[in-house]
Design a protein around this nucleic acid. Structure first.
Length: 805
RNA sequence: GCUGGUGUGGCGGAAUAGGCAGACGCGCAGGACUUAAAAUCCUGUGGUGGCGACAUCGUGCCGGUUCGACCCCGGCCACCAGCACCA
C-alpha cells in the first residue's frame, strides 16, 4: 500500500525544487520557437488573493506548462499593477506610506500565488510603482507629447465627490464612480488628454487581424462607435451664418421639420440680441448644466426643450423655413452639437415632436405595407423606400443616402463625415499614488517636456497624501518640488502636479516582461522582435473597453514610432467567467459568501483548488462555488494517487486500453487549446475509472496519465513521477503523442433505428460494407418491421436507419 | 431600445460535422467494511407505466425542413452581460 496523499508535504517539496532549479525561467535562446502566455497582472489589494484570481492563472498555466513539454521557450510572467486609489486611501486612513502598503500587499500576493504552484517566471517580475519601471511609462508619455497626442484642455470632467478625483468617462458607471459608488458631478478643470480618437479607425481595423473572442471584438467596436453620415449646412434666415448639423440619415432631409441645438451651443451667445426669450433659454441652459450625465439619462423618457424665438433656419433642399429649439437630448460633445430633426423617422425626434406638437413629414415608406407615423417613427432602413423627396423619391434608403451625399458635396452645402463615440482619454488624476507627469510649465515656453536624461521623475515624499477639496493633487503643496527651472530657457517654471491614471502602467507592461532590467530602453529590439506579440492573453471582460483599448492604442502608437515590431500587442484574447458564491451571488463580505483560497489550499491542497477551478464549468461563463465540488476533485486526485497500488510493469499500453489511451491524449490535447478544461479533466476521470475497473495500470499508461494531468495538478504528478521511478522531472518531460489511426476501435457500436427511433445497438467491424451493415441491421430488427421498407440508411461508424411504411 | 450570449435531470454541466441525449462530477438511495461514525469501496439513479426483457414521453414555447433535430430555418418567451438621447 502506498503512503497516504499528504498534499501539504508534496506541494511544499516541489515548490522548493522548482524555485531552486529556476524551472520556469524563460531563456534568451532566441533560436527556439517561443510562446508568450499572459494573464492580467493583479492589483495587489489589501484583501489578498480572491478565488477568482486562480481561474485565469491556472488556465494559462496549463497552456504554458503544456507548451514547455512541447519544446517551446515559454514566457509566462507575473507582476504588479500597484498604483491606485485603494492603496492610497488605505495609506491615508492608517497613516502608512503607500509604498509600504504596496510592499506588504505584494509580499502577501506573491506568497499566495507561490502556494498555488504557478510556473511564472519570477525572474521577470515587474512593478508599475518601481521608478525603474515608471521611467518608461513617463518616457512613453513624452513620446506621445512630442507627437502632439498629449495636450492640456479646460474641460468639464467627471468629478468623484468622494475620491476627490477626476474620472475618465470609462470609469463612470451609471452616473456613479466605478470604484467607490459615490456621486459623480461635472467640474471644469484643466486636464491632460491623450488623443486616442486619432487611432479610432486603426483600433477598429486592427481587430480583423487578431483572434479575439467575439464578444470582446463587439464590445470594442461598440465603444469606439464609428458611424458614417454627413454634415449639412442650414442657412439661418436673413443671415450669413449657417447651422451645421451631423446626421446619419441625410436621405431624410426632405422630412426635417425643425432643428435642435445643444444647450451649450455657441450660437446662443452669438445671437443673444435676436432672441426674444433669451431669459427663458438661459434658465433652461442653467438647469441642464446642473444635471449630471446620469440625470440626463434618467430623465430621457421625458423630453424637455425651449424654442429659440427669433431665429429660424432654411432647409437647403427645399427652401422651407423651420424653427430651432434647444434641448439637452442633443449633446455638445458629439457631432456638431446640432441636429436636424426628422420626427417621422427618428424615435427621439418623434417623442420631442409629439410633446411640443411639431409637424411631421413622412419621407420613407415601406414597400407594400402601410406605415402610420402617428403611431411611431418608421426607422427601418432595410425595407424603406423614399417618398415626398423630389429627386430621391422611389429610391431605396441606401441608394438615397449616396445620392444625397453626392448632391450635398456638389452644391457645397455639406459633406460626407465619419464620427466616433470614442472621446479622448482624460489622463490627469489629482492624486499622489501615481506616475508624475514629466512636464513643466514655463511662463515663456509654455508646456515643456523634461529631457529623457531626467527620467524617472520620482514621486517626492509628501507630508500628506490627502486629496484637496479645491481639486489639486497633494503634490501641489510641495512648493520645493513644484518650483523648478525650464529645461528649455532656464527661466522659472512649475512642475505638473497631476499624476497619471492607473491605466498608464498597465498599457505597456507586457513589453517590459520581455527584457525587464533594461536600463537603456523599455526593452531591447531583439527581445521585442523575438517575444512579441503576446500569443495568448487572458483577462476579465471588465477590462475590454478600458485596459484592452488603451493598451492597444499605446502599442499602435509605439509601432508607428518604430519602438515595437508589430501593430497589435495580443494575437489571441480570451476571457474567463466570474466565480460566484455558493448561493449564486457575487462574492462579497457583506453577503458573507467569500471563499478564501488559503483555506482551500490548506485543507485540500493547491492541486485540488486548481483542478476544481478548471472543472467548475465552461471557462467563459460564470460559475457558482461548491464545497462539495471541491471535495469531488480531491477524491479524483486521491484516486490518481492510489493508482500506485495497482501499477504493473509494461512501458506500453495494454491492448484493451490502447484505443482509450490514444483517444484521451487526443481529447486532452485539443481541449487544453480551446478553453475546454472541464471536459479534459472529465476525460482523465473516465480514464482512471477504466484502470480501476480493470484492476491494473501499466507504467506506460500511468506515465501518460501523469503527463496529461501535470499542467492541471503539477505537484502531485511530479511526486508520483519521482516516487515511481520515472526519469528526470515531469516538467521537463515530453507531451504525449497519439496515433490518429489508433483512436478508433476495430469494432464500433452502431445504433440501429427503425423510422428514426433507436431500437438496439450492434457491434460491427469499423470497415464493414454497406450491404453487410444493412443486412445486420435488418436482422436485428427481425419481427419489428411492419409494412414495406422504403429507405435504408447507413452512416459508417454511426447509424443504421430502416424506414418502413 | 440596440448588440452579443445562454436556456438540457434534484444540482454543476457533456454531446467532433444533423446520427445512441444526459459523458464526468455533485447530491440522493441501497449495500460492503466498522461496536459506531467519518473516510473508502460496490450497485443504482431523467419522468411515467410494467415483476420483467420492454413500452412511452423528454433538451424554454409554437411551427417547419429531414429517414433522423439539443444542433438547421421561421416566429415567440425568459434570463445573463455590454452599450445606451451618439442624431
Amino acid at each position: 500500500m502506498s503512503a497516504p496523499y499528504n498534499h501539504s508535504e508534496v506541494e511544499h517539496k516541489w515548490q522548493k525544487i522548482w524555485d531552486d532549479n529556476k524551472a520556469f525561467a524563460a531563456t534568451n535562446d532566441y533560436s527556439k520557437p517561443k510562446y508568450y502566455a499572459l494573464v492580467e497582472f493583479p492589483y495587489p489589494s489589501g484583501q489578498g488573493l480572491h478565488v477568482g484570481h486562480p481561474r485565469p492563472y491556472t488556465a494559462l498555466d496549463i497552456v504554458a506548462r503544456k507548451r514547455r513539454m512541447q519544446g517551446y521557450n515559454v514566457l509566462y510572467p507575473m507582476g504588479w499593477d500597484a498604483f491606485g486609489l485603494p492603496t492610497e486611501n488605505y495609506a491615508i486612513k492608517n497613516k502608512i506610506h503607500p509604498r509600504v502598503v504596496t510592499e506588504n500587499n505584494v509580499k502577501r500576493f506573491k506568497e499566495q500565488l507561490h502556494a498555488l504552484g504557478y510556473s511564472f517566471d519570477w525572474e521577470r517580475e515587474v512593478n508599475t510603482t518601481d521608478p525603474n519601471y515608471y521611467k518608461w511609462t513617463q518616457w512613453i508619455f513624452l513620446k506621445l507629447f512630442n507627437a502632439g497626442l498629449a495636450y492640456k484642455k479646460e474641460m468639464p470632467i467627471n468629478w468623484c465627490t468622494s475620491c476627490k478625483v477626476g474620472l475618465a468617462n470609462e470609469e463612470v458607471v451609471n452616473g456613479v464612480c466605478e470604484r467607490c459608488g459615490s456621486e459623480v458631478v461635472r467640474k471644469i478643470k484643466s486636464e491632460w488628454m491623450l488623443k486616442i480618437t486619432e487611432y479610432a479607425d486603426k483600433l477598429i481595423e486592427g481587430l480583423e487581424d487578431v483572434d479575439y473572442i467575439e464578444r470582446v471584438k463587439v464590445s470594442q467596436k461598440n465603444w469606439i462607435g464609428r458611424s458614417e453620415g454627413a454634415e449639412v449646412d442650414f442657412k439661418l434666415s436673413g443671415k450669413e451664418e449657417s447651422l451645421r448639423v451631423y446626421t446619419t440619415r441625410p436621405d431624410t432631409l426632405f422630412g426635417a421639420t425643425y432643428m435642435v441645438i445643444s444647450p451649450e451651443h455657441p450660437y446662443i451667445d452669438q445671437f443673444k440680441d435676436e432672441l426674444k426669450n433669451y431669459d427663458e433659454i438661459m434658465a433652461y441652459r442653467e438647469m441642464a448644466s446642473k444635471k449630471s450625465d446620469f440625470e440626463r439619462t434618467e430623465l430621457a423618457k421625458d423630453k424637455t426643450g425651449v424654442l429659440l424665438d427669433g431665429i429660424t433656419a432654411i432647409n437647403p433642399v427645399n427652401g422651407k423655413e423651420i424653427p430651432i429649439w434647444i434641448s439637452d437630448y442633443v449633446l455638445m460633445s458629439y457631432g456638431t452639437g446640432a441636429i436636424m430633426a426628422v420626427p417621422a423617422h427618428d424615435d427621439r425626434d418623434w417623442e420631442f415632436a409629439k410633446k411640443f406638437n411639431l409637424p411631421m413629414i413622412q419621407v420613407v415608406a415601406k414597400e407594400g405595407e402601410e406605415v402610420d407615423i402617428n403611431e411611431a417613427a418608421f426607422t427601418d432602413v432595410a425595407t424603406g423606400v423614399m417618398i415626398n423627396s423630389d429627386f430621391l423619391t422611389g429610391l431605396d434608403v441606401t441608394s438615397a443616402k449616396e445620392k444625397i451625399k453626392d448632391f450635398l458635396e456638389e452644391k457645397k452645402i455639406g459633406n460626407r463625415k465619419v464620427n466616433f463615440k470614442l472621446r479622448d482619454w482624460v489622463f490627469s488624476r489629482q492624486r499622489y499614488w501615481g506616475e508624475p507627469i514629466p512636464i513643466v510649465e514655463c511662463e515663456k515656453c509654455g508646456f515643456v517636456a523634461l529631457p529623457e536624461s531626467e527620467l524617472p521623475l520620482e514621486l517626492p515624499e509628501v507630508d500628506s497624501y490627502m486629496p484637496t477639496d479645491n481639486g489639486e493633487s497633494p503634490l501641489a503643496a510641495m512648493t520645493d518640488w513644484v518650483n523648478t527651472t525650464c529645461p528649455c530657457c532656464g527661466g522659472p517654471a512649475k512642475r505638473e502636479t497631476d499624476t497619471m491614471p492607473q491605466w498608464a502602467g498597465s498599457s505597456w507592461y507586457f513589453l517590459r516582461y520581455t527584457d525587464p532590467d533594461n536600463k537603456d530602453a523599455l526593452a531591447s529590439k531583439e527581445a521585442l522582435e523575438y517575444w512579441m506579440p503576446v500569443d495568448w492573453y487572458n483577462g476579465g471582460m471588465e477590462h475590454t473597453t478600458l485596459h484592452l483599448l488603451y493598451s492597444r492604442f499605446w502599442h499602435k502608437f509605439l509601432y508607428d514610432e518604430k519602438v515595437v515590431p508589430c501593430p497589435e500587442p495580443y494575437q489571441k484574447r480570451t476571457s474567463h467567467g466570474m466565480i460566484l458564491g455558493e448561493n449564486g451571488e457575487k462574492m462579497s463580505k457583506s453577503r458573507g459568501n467569500v471563499v478564501n483560497p488559503d483555506d482551500i489550499v490548506r485543507e485540500y491542497g493547491a492541486d485540488t483548488l486548481r483542478t476544481y477551478e478548471m472543472f467548475i464549468g465552461a471557462f467563459d461563463l460564470s460559475a457558482s462555488w461548491s464545497e462539495n465540488g471541491v471535495k469531488g476533485c480531491r477524491r479524483f486526485l486521491d484516486r490518481v494517487w492510489k493508482l500506485q497500488d495497482i501499477l504493473v510493469d509494461g512501458d506500453g499500453y495494454s491492448s484493451d486500453l490502447e484505443t482509450l489511451m490514444h483517444q484521451t491524449i487526443k481529447k486532452v490535447s485539443a481541449d487544453f487549446e480551446s478553453l475546454k478544461y472541464n471536459t479534459a479533466i472529465a476525460a482523465m476521470m473516465s480514464l482512471i475509472n477504466e484502470f480501476y475497473k480493470k484492476g491494473s495500470v501499466t507504467r506506460g499508461e500511468f506515465g501518460t496519465l501523469l503527463t496529461l494531468l501535470n499542467p492541471v495538478a503539477p505537484h502531485i504528478t511530479e511526486e508520483l513521477w519521482a516516487v515511481n521511478g520515472y526519469s528526470g522531472y515531469i516538467y521537463e518531460s515530453t507531451w504525449p503523442a497519439y496515433d490518429e489511426a489508433k483512436t478508433v476501435e476495430d469494432t464500433v457500436d452502431i445504433a440501429v433505428q427503425l423510422n428514426g427511433k433507436t431500437k438496439t445497438v450492434l457491434k460491427l467491424a469499423k470497415d464493414i460494407s454497406k450491404d453487410d451493415a444493412l443486412a445486420a441491421g435488418k436482422a436485428a430488427l427481425e419481427g419489428k418491421i411492419s409494412g414495406t421498407i422504403i429507405k435504408e440508411i447507413y452512416v459508417p461508424g454511426r447509424i443504421i436507419n430502416i424506414v418502413a411504411k
